[in-house]
Amino acid sequence: MEHRALGSQGLIASVQGLGCMGMSVFYGAADETESLATVDRALELGVTLLDTAESYGPFVNEQLLGRALAGRRESAVLATKTGVEITDDGQMVGLNGRPEYVRRALERSLRNLGTDHVDLYYLHRIDPNVPIEETVGALAELVAEGKVRHLGVCEASAQTIRRAHAVHPLTAVQTEYSLFERGIEHNGVLDALRELGIGLVAYSPLGRGFLSGAITSPDDFAEDDWRRTDPRFQGKNFDRNLDVVREVRRIASVNHVTPSQLALAWVQRQGAVAIPGTKRRRYLEENIAATEVTLTDQDIAAVEEVAPHGVVSGDRYAPEMMGTLDG
């Protein structure tokens, strides 16, 4: 596994990380035994960047990683997030970027993770009612205290990223980025990251599993899988997106790789660190193999032809969730 600088603030991480959210919530029934085995296997194969958030559960996913890393905390680059207010009994309240909340949330995350520091601490969503300068100022204090090593923001506009970075240098911005979702190439975000030396961490690099080629019908999802309500998996959107996936599968077959490996190799070619989520070792191993895939300029051109910007049908989230995105 290749390791490289994530951003320009000194953080070194594996070129591919592991998104841990689905081990606990949103993607059907949890299996703690297999999830812990998946984390074990990831570390064994050289993955260091493990991604979670206090809102995943809430708290449950952080606690799972705390158990997974017991006795070997320094083997991982541990990333978690705050900014979605949660009461101590697990009730979601809404966005909260107030300094007093992010400080309290970090202390709770440290307890759940069983550690005294977080390597990368993100503001999960931008609170429109709190100036970003105030929130990042509070996060900077946590860095000064040694409880946080590096800072990041998620789903932020180029303007917000610049304002945040001016208060304290950001190491990473996490946002959705894949063959299906290429908005940051056109809204100024990718340009800002390159100009400021901020790393890009791509979540949902497989289009929430669509680009794996394994999903052929909305009925493939469990009853409690949130993708049943995702606009891109509904009606005509599903059919149009499946047509794109068929073309991705065709190109992957020519290159003797799986559709997942092609999609991940494309994200890696763009300079991003992908954090595909999985709770099963077999998918983890398939995903990690993408780090060994080299795409030629001809391959990239073929992918660009079938999956240009705007090819995906349907919004990224349901309307009530779209309102939480900055810009």
Rank of each mutant, 00 (worst) to 15 (best):
residue 126 I to E: 06
residue 180 F to V: 02
residue 153 V to C: 13
residue 56 Y to C: 05
residue 89 D to L: 05
residue 122 Y to I: 04
residue 29 A to S: 11
residue 159 Q to I: 14
residue 307 A to V: 08
residue 70 A to R: 15
residue 43 L to C: 06
residue 95 L to S: 08
residue 68 A to P: 09
residue 201 V to S: 07
residue 27 Y to T: 04
residue 12 I to C: 06
residue 203 Y to F: 14
residue 124 H to P: 01
residue 203 Y to I: 12
residue 274 A to Y: 03
residue 158 A to M: 08
residue 236 K to D: 15
residue 168 H to Y: 15
residue 273 V to M: 12
residue 19 G to M: 01
residue 249 R to Y: 04
residue 34 E to L: 07
residue 93 V to S: 05
residue 259 P to Q: 11
residue 154 C to E: 08
residue 177 Y to D: 05
residue 85 E to G: 08
residue 280 R to T: 14
residue 106 L to T: 02
residue 242 L to P: 01
residue 33 T to D: 08
residue 241 N to S: 11
residue 85 E to A: 15
residue 271 G to A: 08
residue 263 A to G: 07
residue 59 F to N: 04
residue 168 H to F: 14
residue 262 L to N: 04
residue 140 A to S: 15
residue 301 A to G: 10
residue 189 V to R: 01
residue 107 E to S: 11
residue 245 V to T: 04
residue 219 D to P: 02
residue 317 Y to S: 05
residue 246 R to C: 01
residue 5 A to L: 10
residue 156 A to W: 01
residue 281 R to H: 00
residue 198 I to K: 13
residue 154 C to M: 07
residue 236 K to T: 14
residue 196 L to E: 08
residue 270 Q to S: 14
residue 294 T to Y: 09
residue 178 S to F: 00
residue 178 S to N: 00
residue 123 L to W: 03
residue 249 R to C: 11
residue 268 Q to P: 09
residue 235 G to T: 13
residue 289 A to M: 02
residue 121 Y to V: 12
residue 174 Q to M: 10
residue 202 A to I: 12
residue 98 R to D: 11
residue 193 L to C: 08
residue 303 V to T: 07
residue 293 V to T: 11
residue 191 D to E: 14
residue 132 I to N: 02
residue 92 M to W: 14
residue 79 A to I: 06
residue 148 V to R: 10
residue 5 A to N: 04
residue 290 A to T: 08
residue 112 N to M: 12
residue 290 A to L: 09
residue 163 R to Y: 07
residue 63 Q to E: 15
residue 16 Q to Y: 03
residue 256 H to N: 15
residue 53 A to E: 10
residue 61 N to A: 10
residue 103 R to I: 00
residue 274 A to E: 02
residue 221 F to D: 02
residue 159 Q to D: 14
residue 194 R to W: 08
residue 88 D to I: 05
residue 112 N to F: 06
residue 194 R to Y: 07
residue 226 W to S: 06
residue 283 Y to A: 07
residue 250 R to C: 00
residue 221 F to A: 01
residue 307 A to D: 06
residue 73 R to D: 11
residue 59 F to L: 10
residue 1 M to A: 15
residue 140 A to C: 14
residue 178 S to W: 00
residue 201 V to A: 06
residue 12 I to L: 10
residue 98 R to E: 13
residue 165 H to Q: 03
residue 155 E to Q: 09
residue 62 E to M: 05
residue 158 A to F: 09
residue 65 L to N: 09
residue 138 A to D: 07
residue 42 A to I: 14
residue 230 D to V: 12
residue 157 S to P: 05
residue 149 R to M: 03
residue 160 T to R: 12
residue 243 D to V: 13
residue 228 R to F: 07
residue 36 L to S: 07
residue 90 G to Q: 10
residue 251 I to W: 09
residue 83 G to E: 11
residue 22 G to S: 01
residue 126 I to A: 12
residue 102 V to R: 06
residue 83 G to A: 12
residue 274 A to S: 13
residue 101 Y to M: 06
